[in-house]
């Protein structure tokens, strides 16, 4: 067996999977016995928890207030309809963020004194928009920009909601990209430049593709955050899923609508998390140059 390792491979070659992913979840053991033990311990744990909860004195009232089947059924259609707004906001914002944040990250990494002002701009941008609470940005832009009453400035709350989310999240994602770019070994850039590619081409074809693959987990973290933060747009008027739940709550004095909203959000985020796990696993195999099972 050959082990042609070189400095080109990532430092964490030691993480090369010694077993399949499913066996890692089970704790390293393999086989039917492991599965059986896992199943049994799960059942025991959840049964104990369930018993504790259901026998507590406040349970009936809790159930009426938070887990009310009637209210759930009635609130679901309106909240699901409002949730479409969250999805729309999320899709539009995410598309823009992925591109804009990369632009900021590249700005930040431009070399040489002549690009100093651009680098500073990028740093100031990421500091400011990571520092100000998202809700404040939405509030300020959503109410402040239209207040200027300039004819070329849009007044739509949805527009400013998306813009605010893009500005805030691009700051985080830019830093994630930057970490990814810096994690690509400089020898990759050296190899690309040695072929005669200019810096832009080296970035575009060699560095950024590798950088992006490496930062898929933190990128996903930020996007799950974005999905949930779409609810903040409600403060400037649009009725999205969380606001709709608030409306239902005010009308019924029952909190079950929030359960509806929560479940809808989970429906969106969980599949995305699994998809990303799959993407990571697929790319990992390629990254670990030289290591073979």
């Amino acid at each position: 067996m050959d082990h042609g390792q070189g400095e080109g491979s990532p430092d964490h070659a030691g993480l090369a999977a010694t077993g399949s992913r499913s066996s890692r979840i089970l704790g390293g053991a393999e086989g039917a016995r492991a599965v059986a033990i896992a199943l049994a311990s799960t059942v025991v744990l959840f049964t104990v928890l369930a018993v504790l909860v259901v026998t507590s004195p406040g349970w009936p009232e809790f159930r009426r207030t938070f887990l009310n089947r009637e209210v759930f059924r009635e609130a679901l259609p309106e909240i699901a309809d409002a949730f479409l707004l969250n999805v729309r906001i999320f899709l539009i914002a995410e598309g823009i963020i992925l591109v804009f944040a990369l632009f900021i990250a590249v700005l930040r990494s431009l070399p040489g004194p002549v690009f100093f002002p651009l680098r500073v701009l990028a740093i100031v941008y990421t500091d400011v928009f990571r520092g100000i609470p998202t809700i404040l940005v939405i509030y300020t832009l959503g109410f402040g920009a239209p207040a200027l009453q300039l004819s070329w400035v849009p007044i739509s709350p949805l527009f400013w909601g998306v813009v605010s989310l893009v500005l805030v999240y691009s700051a985080y994602v830019a830093e994630v990209y930057r970490a990814g770019i810096e994690s690509v070994h400089p020898s990759q850039e050296a190899a690309a430049r040695s072929l005669g590619l200019n810096r832009g081409q080296a970035l575009r074809f060699v560095i950024i593709p590798q950088a992006v693959r490496r930062v898929v987990p933190p990128l996903l973290n930020d996007f799950i955050g974005l999905q949930k933060d779409t609810a903040l747009v409600a403060i400037i008027g649009p009725v999205e899923a969380f606001r709709q739940a608030q409306i239902e709550e005010a009308a019924t004095f029952n909190f079950t609508p929030y359960l509806v909203t929560g479940l809808l959000f989970l429906l969106l985020t969980i599949p995305l998390a699994r998809l990303t796990d799959w993407l990571i696993a697929r790319d990992r195999r390629r990254q670990l140059a030289g290591a073979r099972a």
Binding site: F143, P146, A147, Q149, I155, S156, P157, A234, I235, I236, G237, P238, V239, R243, Q246, I247
Partner: peptide, 21 residues
């Protein structure tokens, strides 16, 4: 059209003065 909903009355007033509602 679905009405716009705000956390407090001042926000509603701001939205009105912004022509957002």
């Amino acid at each position: 059209e679905k009405p716009a909903v705000y956390d407090n009355l001042n926000d509603v007033i701001t939205a009105l003065s912004n022509h957002q509602i």
